[in-house]
Design a protein around this nucleic acid. Sequence first.
RNA 1: GCCCGGGUGGCGGAAUCGGCAGACGCAACGGACUUAAAAUCCGUUUCCGCUGACGCGGAGUGGGGGUUCGAGUCCCCCCCCGGGCACCA
Length: 846
Amino acid sequence: MKEKYPFKEIEPRWQQFWEERRLFYTDVSDAGKKYYCLMMFPYPSGALHVGHGRNYIIGDAVARYKIMRGFKVLAPMGWDAFGLPAENAAINTGRHPRDSTRENISIMKRQIISWGCCYDWDREIATCEPEYYKWTQWFFLKFYERGLAYKARAPVNWCPSCATVLANEQVVNGRCERCGTAIETRELEQWFFRITAYAQRLLDDLEKLDGWPERVKTMQANWIGRSEGTRLDFRLVPRPDGGSDPFDTIPCFTTRVDTIYGCTYMVIAPEYPHIDELVRGLPQEQEVLEYVRRSLRTPRAARTSESAEKTGVFTGRYVVNPYTSEPVPLWVADYVLMEYGTGAVMAVPAHDERDWDFARRHGLKIKLVIQNPERTLRLEDMQQAYTDFGLLVDSGPFSGLSSSEAIQKMTAYAEEQGFGGPQVHYRLRDWLISRQRYWGAPIPIVYCEKCGTVPVPEDRLPVLLPDNVEFRPHGESPLKRCPEFMNTTCPRCGGAAQRESDTMDTFVDSSWYYLRYLSPHDDHRAIDSQACNRWLPVDQYIGGVEHAILHLLYARFFTKVLHDMGLVEFDEPFAHLFTQGMICKRSPKDGKLYKMSKSRGNVVSPDKLIEEYGADTVRLYTLFIGPPEKDAEWSDQGVEGAYRFLRRLWKKVYDHQDVLRESVPGKIDRRLLDPEERELYRQTNSAIQSITDDLEGDFHFNTAVARIMELLNAIDRLSVHRDSAPSRKAVFAHALRNLILLISPFAPHIAEELWVQLGNPPGILKVDWPTADPDALAMEEVELAVQINGKVRARIRVAADASEEEIRSLALSDERVKKWTEGAEVRKIVVVPGRLVNIATRRHSS
RNA sequence: GCCCGGGUGGCGGAAUCGGCAGACGCAACGGACUUAAAAUCCGUUUCCGCUGACGCGGAGUGGGGGUUCGAGUCCCCCCCCGGGCACCA
């Protein structure tokens, strides 16, 4: 055994050992307690930094722990390999995305292996390979068959810098999630997945997800944005010139039908269909058309920002309030959004802040119809809208009702009268999946002049991405300029036809990869239903919280569709979700803390650290850095600390090799131990107990590592040498042996090596996880704090099983306690066994 | 504005059910070893006051109030930070 901790020598050796023994290769047909441990697969961006490592290290620690607990663990890894960055790089360098992606994959795979993270590499998948995207296309066809994929002209988010459309989920504060460019709205024909058809189920089933963090569920619920209200149809007052209109009612959605008697005007969005026909020939026509044109040009971000002033114009038309039969003016204003509700809003300025602002600005009538039950409102005094619930006034037959009663009754009335009824709205929009880019799975659709839109037959999949394309940014997919790809024959009539040139959003690829791991190379079907039903839902999914909405919502949607198709029995993919926090580092530029990223220049490469300290040090520090679900700041000195600890551990074993090798593990008889030995034995068992609890609970790796450090400190306190008593040697060996087992999921290389040095056969993963001896946890004597009125004034030592009476008298007879209780009346004594005694006293005023 | 988190030493963070606040690590300081340095080992470190000293007393978990023998933990009010949603009708 070497004196100095030889991490450089042992780490590659054990990595090879795990690979050769195929310890992480899983036969999925095998019975047994299964545990599917899944880490979010990475986008092959180039090279990993230590921030990425947190994900894999946590997952690997969990997998190793579960293996030692006797589970059959499935831990696969793959690559989310399609995507914009590779294509943007191709535009700049001319290098084909396939080549750069493959190269990045091999760099990152090497890094993951050098971290000591183990996977079933036979199941490795890359979404950019035809054997994978063939089935992404197949799912598209299935969605198309079921009416869940459709093409529609719609106002969409356009990123001028990426030159592509984006899903709503990829627009953050009106800017492109990737490049930060302000998003424009364009009216384009695009492909959508009908996720809104699943809105209610996606919302309801959040309740089933006990193993998910509350905050992720809340974020998804917010995103789905269910809102209950009332639909009301407002009849259009016929044109004064007797001309015809494109429609005769304007439906609107409201959550506050109780305020309808205060509706003094109605507003429609500038995108509202056929506005031009509504105003044709009216004096307002030019002004309205000009206003609409201007609004449509305004970027969405500017239009919807809070500070934006509420502009709008009167159309010259009126609609009829269905409750009062009174006409109210119809306005166009861009504070109303076409995407939400019906694109039309009944405006009640007295009871809605936005309508209040708008009405004040444009001199519209304000009518008070809800009274504050606490304090009578007078319109003249009001500085802002009263938006709370209250009692209805001036509301015809509904006057006097409370808002909540009124909402019910008035909605029922609308239904009876046939001009409306209850309605539920969702904020969630359909998922826009087409991208005008090359590096993605081609949408398997053909356009034929005769037959129209024709899906590519399943047996002609995959629609392969052509290689010989030119990468230039010109707002349409490079595929469009590739005639070999574009020109095809119609699968239906055999005539000349054109292919769809758009590719799919990469979130489609990642919506089903966790199913493909069960049969990664099956070229007959997308997934192996039987194996999926056995292994899913995923027992533990681990990844970054940045995917709380996007990926996790899409994957849930996919699973539900597959469930409805009869392909899988489960309808939620991930039973437990763990979202780890980001690793941050101060930026060298401004000294502020940021998430590690190449562009900030604050990344720490694992390669250098592993070279200098070894993978186990990096792993141990990464787990110790803080609560794994929270963000953490990387500290180079913290890494040193972890390294120091492992060196100390190595030296401990090195210094006591003889003692350790000669003592055979066996039952330890506590009665034969002296107090020091008994204390170490107790601490060993206590460490086993709490580390197991930490891992079974919410992955408290930071406290688990702390407990291991404490155990080594405790081991240090017991002096042992060649001539020590056998019992002492046995306790010492027992403690170290268990420490090595306990640390093995975190620092597996050193654990394997020391395990062998202790005289055990290689392969610590085959050893059972230790269990604590409950008898050993008990202390014979405990120290109790004695409080007087809640302040600690003394300490007493008592037998652990001392009666309350004994403790009481012992406490009262303590010198220091006497000093404090002298001349005071003891009112009450509280004894908390094993912890403290509190004596409440009262001083007599003398 | 609404909905989630969170606020504890110089720093990262511990603290089952309400029971000794500051585990563990970092940093700093003092000492040992060394010709010296590094490494290592030992010790000190919440703040304030008193003491020659072993010590003693007081305050203390963002602020204020409450419940309790006892509050970082429970209740009420407020402040600050992070995240999500947001002209959503």
